[in-house]
C-alpha cells in the first residue's frame, strides 16, 4: 500500500548570504506519522521548520506541505498546519475559553462550530473547571497540554511541535506524549523537535541534522542497530557532533 505523503522535501537549500543553513535536504513524511527532527543547536532545524511552516522561503529545491508548494504559496500552508512551541503558545491574558475561540477564529472556523467543539475539548482534557481561568494562572504542564490541543483544534493535516515538553515534569511529559499518540492515530501527522533524547524513541522515524545536512533518517531501532548504540542519546552524541570545531 502506497502511504500518503504529507510533506515532500527534495534538495531543499536555504542560504543566508554565504552561510548555508540547509544543504540539500531530502525527506518525506507520511500521514499519521510521528516524525522526530533532531540536531545540535545551530544544525539548521529551525530554518527548515520555518520553511515547512510557510514562514520562510527556500533558496532552492522543492518543498510540498499538505500538497502546497512552499516557494509559491506559503500563506496557504499556514492555514493547513498547526504549530506550537514552548516560547509561543497561548495568550497569557486571555482565559482558556477565549484562547480556544481566538485560535478557532484565526483558522477560519465559524463560531457555531467552535463553541460545541470547545466544550467537548474542555471535557476531554478534564479542563472544565479551568474554562474561565487566565492562562497565566495555569501551571506549566496544563498550559502545554492545552497549547497542544489548541494547535490541533482546527484538525490540521500536520502539527509542528517545537520543543513542546521543555521543562515540564515527567508525568505531564508522558501525558503529553499520549496526546501525541492519540493525535497521530487520528491521522494527523506530528512533526516534533526535542532535546530529550529518550523522546526520540517515541517517534516512528527520526532524522538527525548536523551542520545543515541530514546525517541520519530511519526508525529509532534501525538507527540504533546501524550504529551499534544502545540509546538515541549515545547515537546522537556519536553522529551529531560537528566535524569542524565551530564550538
Amino acid at each position: 500500500m502506497e502511504r500518503e505523503k504529507v510533506i515532500e522535501v527534495k534538495d531543499l537549500v536555504k542560504r543566508f548570504g554565504a552561510f548555508t543553513a540547509n544543504d540539500r535536504l531530502t525527506f518525506d513524511v507520511y500521514r499519521g506519522e510521528i516524525f522526530g527532527f533532531l540536531g545540535a543547536n545551530g544544525a539548521g532545524k529551525t530554518t527548515a521548520m520555518r520553511i515547512l511552516c510557510g514562514l520562510s522561503r527556500p533558496t532552492s529545491g522543492r518543498v510540498l506541505v499538505a500538497g502546497i508548494d512552499a516557494s509559491r504559496r506559503p500563506e496557504e500552508i499556514k492555514k493547513r498546519i498547526g504549530y506550537m512551541s514552548q516560547r509561543f503558545s497561548l495568550y497569557e491574558d486571555l482565559t482558556v475559553r477565549e484562547n480556544i475561540e481566538l485560535y478557532g477564529g484565526i483558522y477560519g472556523m465559524a463560531m457555531k462550530e467552535i463553541l460545541p467543539r470547545r466544550e467537548a475539548l474542555l471535557e476531554r482534557l478534564d479542563f472544565t473547571s479551568y474554562g474561565d481561568t487566565l492562562i497565566r494562572a495555569l501551571p506549566l504542564g496544563l498550559k502545554q497540554k492545552l497549547a497542544f490541543a489548541v494547535a490541533v483544534f482546527h484538525d490540521p493535516g500536520i502539527v509542528f511541535l517545537d520543543e513542546p515538553t521543555s521543562g515540564v515534569d515527567p508525568v505531564t511529559r508522558r501525558q503529553f506524549w499520549e496526546m501525541i499518540y492519540e493525535t497521530a492515530s487520528r491521522g494527523i501527522t506530528v512533526f516534533v523537535t526535542t532535546h530529550y533524547m529518550d523522546e526520540a524513541e517515541y517517534c516512528d522515524r527520526i532524522t538527525i541534522m548536523s551542520e545543515g545536512r541530514i546525517v541520519a533518517l530511519d526508525t529509532p531501532s534501525a538507527l540504533l542497530r546501524q550504529y551499534g548504540t544502545k540509546s538515541v542519546e549515545e547515537l546522537f552524541v556519536k553522529i551529531a557532533r560537528p566535524q569542524r570545531n565551530t564550538v
Partner: peptide
Amino acid sequence: TTGVDAVSRT
C-alpha cells in the same frame, strides 16, 4: 544545560 543540545550537554 536547559535548551542545550545533547552533544553540548555531554
